[in-house]
């Protein structure tokens, strides 16, 4: 039976194995290659995407769980040409080293900011995405900066 859902605003149908982890669907079939594989067991967060706006580790969710829902990957985070406040803050703070974990980091942080627009240090450090390059100090700074940027954007709007 075909599974229907939306990926970054596009309608998609998938007729393969419904047990396939969403991660492999997104990488191999939807070609959203910004979604990364790091462990396949939900331990690293490199594969983090949003399912109806909430962060999930796509390696640990079967594609069938996305049926009728909206999937957003890093490719769909910006509004057209306008980068998300986190993406801007990430560039400003020069966060990436190898960069491999960063899509997952940003998606996890975006979920945090959506739930908690002004997160405290404890909430920021509670994010459990792994960064093998050790960019955590700059990730934390970037999240704080993005929270500020968003406030500034709201004032402007």
């Amino acid at each position: 039976m075909a599974i229907e859902f939306v990926v970054n605003g596009k309608d998609m149908t998938f007729e393969g194995d419904p047990e396939m982890p969403l991660l492999w669907y997104l990488r191999d079939h939807a070609q959203t290659l910004g979604v990364k594989y790091g462990c396949g067991v939900g331990a690293c967060g490199a594969c983090t995407v949003h399912l109806d706006g909430g962060a999930v580790r796509s390696c640990s969710v079967p594609v069938s769980a996305a049926a009728g829902r909206k999937v957003t990957t890093i490719e769909g985070l910006a509004q057209g040409d306008t980068l998300h406040a986190l993406q801007r803050a990430w560039i400003e703070e020069d966060v990436p080293q190898c960069g491999y974990c960063q899509a997952g980091q940003i998606m996890a942080a975006a979920d945090l900011l959506a739930r908690t627009p002004d997160p405290g240090d404890d909430e920021i450090t509670a994010l459990t995405n792994l960064c093998r390059c050790g960019t955590y100090p700059r990730i934390r700074k970037a999240i704080r900066r993005a929270a500020g940027l968003r406030k500034a954007d709201e004032v402007k709007a």
Binding site: G34, I74, E75, I91, V95, Q102
Partner: peptide
Amino acid sequence: RVVDAEDIVTGK
């Protein structure tokens, strides 16, 4: 800054 930063944060 890292020259690829924008590509990295947009998944490109």
